[in-house]
Design a binder for these strands. Structure first.
Lengths: 357, 357
DNA sequence: TCAAAAAATGTAAACGTTTGCATTTTTGAG
DNA sequence: CTCAAAAATGCAAACGTTTACATTTTTTGA
């Protein structure tokens, strides 16, 4: 809007002008060669005579020339860029996969364009549109809950994408993830196997988070499978805050028949819940057992140490990025991968019944 | 490398070809107008007749046309992109500022290009070079420890940049941050004012982290100012892991004259240190006081709750992004801002001496 | 020393938009 | 209806690279 691109500032520019952007043309001029030769000196050094190359490289050095990846993208029709959308970065479990994605992308010569959707498919769609406009070569999404028109657009634009944090059975939705349902089932089965009969659940909001939904379903199915009743007062969907875990736990304890074990479908809430129990003078696991989910580093530093489900966040991130890059470069469909989880039994779980409520 | 850009696939393409990228030209063709009109319909709707506009918009819808931001960047010479380099995303305090930067950037119509340097100026330089190549409109860096040639390159390319997490006194280095030295001094002064005379320090590695250096200097200056001796055995530089905080604390406790108070220059290490004390059966704060730094959410959920320094991570991120965007759009120099910190006294600090070591 | 082969370099088009200016179409007043 | 003014649309250049092909220079081998 400010200046017309028509105005040819360059031709009027003295050879050593201010901080104006230096282009390959400037370098060519100063080195007394054509732009083609500069380009070759930079990309295929063996294709230009040593003397010329050195002269060019010197000018590049002097002028701090940085080649314009945008122009290159224009020609090559690849941006060497991967779009990543996560629901939040504040839960360090997403930070973990993000860091691994970023690292693997960088290793492969790609840069990560980051979007944070804050659990809103709508906002995600806006974000993703922007990433598509930036011509990302691939798109890594979180979970399976997306605006349908977004997915259509991604497909129409031929941009490879994959899902993390949620195992998709659907062939058309490649995913690199573990199985939330299976992982949660293992946790709940473990509590039942310890003898617990009154179980509580704290999880994320299933309306905006299909991973939370998988885990909740696993919980409910488990109870049913074992012939246990599900008490709605013992199921709480909350945001990912320690505070929320604490208040959910408080609500359950204030119930006529409090649970003897609580499955918190993520560690953040579990830490809050655990903290509240101790504040109320309850023994964990003597009075009540708690299982978390994610295996955050902090879970080894709670008192007592938290039993939880270890999730392959780093591995998932790395694999996702590698698979994405392979798909981009080989122009091949994205490969789905299922990763495994592991129940880490620490100190917050025991058979029930030491105290009667 | 694969296909020559010369080959004009387009002219040979049947009107309803596969998933090939749809360009403004395709839309123009199908709508029976020129590319200029399509462009105007999209960007200045009032400049085209309603009937035409609708026809075009319908085609856009049908073809899932996504306009090529790369081509637009090419012309406008702005990428609507902000580069952000942080040392790690795993420490949730950086995640906090990152999230706020991302949010503010998005609100302003910008996308964030993320780089994680892992505390290496060398890696940072590589990353930043890549961001410059991607023609970021601005660059947000962490701390003041950078490859000098990188800074020169940033300047030569006329890309505005700013520093977060470290207050720069130098005019040439705009920063949006709080003062690490001042903040750390407040924490140590507080411990001294409680009566502590043997103080320990756990902090990050000062050779790669100038924020840690500021905090360490504050610690040492404080002791000296109060006429206290500094015992090298009570100063530990460690990585940002709870485990590291724990082992540093262990080392100090195993010393002939253990400290009665320890300043951990970040909460991660503080949580580890606190955990170790309790494992050894020490009363906190009865036997030993601990102060952290960052005010992570988790610090309200440790037993006892951690005294720490609250850092304006979110505010800093938001301001940094806003200031950067203002600088980009108004072509004005970046404004420096100093933010304030606050000592949050919780439960891990008390006068010394209940127990004699 | 010379011609042919090989190597180095140059020329110009292309990538997908936006936009100043030119041209065409529509509108509206008389 | 006419014609001038206004509105709508089209044309074509430009952004900064890369690269096929053309041209020039260097090398090689008799």
């Amino acid at each position: 809007m400010a200046s017309s691109p028509r105005t040819n500032r360059r031709s009027a520019k003295p050879p050593t002008a201010g901080t104006d952007k230096v282009t390959i043309r400037d370098v060519a001029l100063r080195a007394g060669v054509s732009t083609a030769t500069v380009s070759r000196a930079l990309n295929r050094p063996d294709k230009v005579r040593a003397a010329t190359r050195e002269r060019i490289l010197k000018v590049v050095e002097e002028t701090h020339f940085v080649y314009d990846g945008i122009a290159v993208s224009m020609i090559s029709r690849r941006s060497r860029t991967i779009g990543l959308i996560i629901p939040t970065i504040m839960n360090s479990i997403y930070a973990a996969s993000t860091q691994s994605i970023q690292r693997a992308a960088q290793a492969g010569g790609y840069t990560v364009l980051l979007g944070v959707s804050e659990f809103s498919p709508k906002q995600e769609a806006v974000l993703a549109q922007r990433l598509l406009e930036r011509r990302v070569d691939g798109l890594i999404l979180t979970g399976g809950n997306h605006d349908p028109s977004l997915i259509k657009k991604i497909r129409a634009n031929g941009v490879p994408f994959l899902i993390t944090w949620k195992l998709m059975r659907d062939q058309d939705w490649p995913s690199v993830s573990f199985d939330n349902y299976k992982a949660a089932r293992a946790a709940v089965d473990f509590l039942v196997s310890l003898g617990h009969r009154r179980l509580g659940l704290v999880c994320g909001r299933t309306d905006v988070n299909d991973r939370a939904l998988d885990r909740r379903r696993a919980f409910e199915d488990c109870l049913q499978r074992h012939g246990l009743s599900t008490n709605p007062a013992l199921i709480h969907e909350r945001d990912f805050e320690m505070e929320e875990g604490a208040s959910a736990m408080a609500a359950m304890l204030d119930t006529p028949e409090p649970p003897t074990a609580v499955f918190c479908a993520n560690d953040i809430q579990a830490i809050g819940a655990l903290s509240l129990c101790r504040e109320r003078g309850l023994e964990v696991p003597g009075d009540i057992s708690i299982v978390g989910f994610d295996d955050l580093p902090a879970t080894s530093y709670t008192r007592p140490k938290l039993t939880t489900v270890r999730v392959p966040a780093h591995d998932m991130g790395r694999r996702a990025a590698e698979i994405m890059i392979a798909s981009i470069e080989r122009r091949t469909p994205v490969q789905s991968v299922e990763l495994q989880t592991e129940l880490i039994v620490r100190e917050t779980t025991a058979p029930p019944g030491r105290r009667v409520f």
